[in-house]
Amino acid sequence: MKSSTRNLAGFTGAGYDKGRPKAIQALWLLASTLLCDRIWCPPKLRVAILRLFGASIGDNVLIRHNVRIHWPWKLSVGNNVWIGVDAWLLNLEKITIGSDVCISQGAFLCTGSHDANSPTFEFDNAEIVLDDGVWIAAKATVLRGVTIGANAVVGATALVHKDVPENMRVLAAPATTSVRRMR
């Protein structure tokens, strides 16, 4: 068997601060699982619970059910924001969302990563910023360290790994295989 250059047993998690004591983390996980994620939880209650756990959330914000928010205390949301069903905000670091932003169904915002050059695979996390008027379409992915400029659109299933200037559109690559009838 080939020897690995990774030593995951040596992983320390250096540089990652969860931001709250373990008891608060556990309470959040319980509240999110039992209340926030559920379809029967009214959106206004969902927002109130997120605020209770430290999220900064503006007015007229609609967060649908099954939205996963890793740490609410690392979330800042402006006014008039929509976050669709099954969106996942994996915010090991801060996610800042401006006003009049739409994050569509199944979108994934991920502030976490690992250093591929680290033998112990240490974290390589960074914030995500969505400026005012941004639309992240269905099942799009925005990776750590990215800023999406004002009024930019990230199309369905697109993968964004570097900054997007304002008023730009990022679209997923089209299929490269030819379409033909199955026999």
Rank of each mutant, 00 (worst) to 15 (best):
V47A: 07
A48R: 11
A48E: 05
F53I: 04
F53K: 04
F53E: 01
S56Y: 00
I57C: 06
I57G: 08
D59I: 00
N60V: 00
V61K: 02
R64S: 12
H65Q: 12
V67E: 03
R68M: 09
R68S: 12
I69W: 10
I69Q: 05
I69T: 07
W71S: 13
K74H: 14
K74M: 02
L75S: 03
W82K: 01
I83C: 07
G84T: 11
V85R: 14
V85W: 09
W88D: 13
L89D: 11
N91Q: 06
L92P: 00
L92N: 14
K94M: 10
G98D: 08
G98A: 11
S99L: 09
S99K: 05
S99I: 04
V101K: 05
C102M: 13
I103G: 06
Q105E: 14
Q105N: 12
A107I: 07
F108C: 02
G112T: 11
G112Y: 05
S113Y: 04
H114E: 01
H114S: 06
D115W: 00
D115A: 15
N117L: 11
N117Y: 09
N117H: 12
T120F: 03
T120V: 11
F123K: 08
F123E: 00
D124E: 13
N125H: 15
A126W: 02
E127I: 07
I128D: 08
L130A: 11
V134D: 05
W135C: 13
W135M: 14
W135V: 13
I136E: 12
A138V: 05
K139Q: 14
T141E: 05
V142W: 01
L143N: 12
L143T: 14
L143P: 01
G145V: 03
G145C: 07
G145P: 06
V146H: 01
T147C: 13
G149V: 08
A150Q: 15
A152N: 03
V153E: 02
V153T: 09
V154K: 03
T157H: 13
V160N: 06
H161V: 14
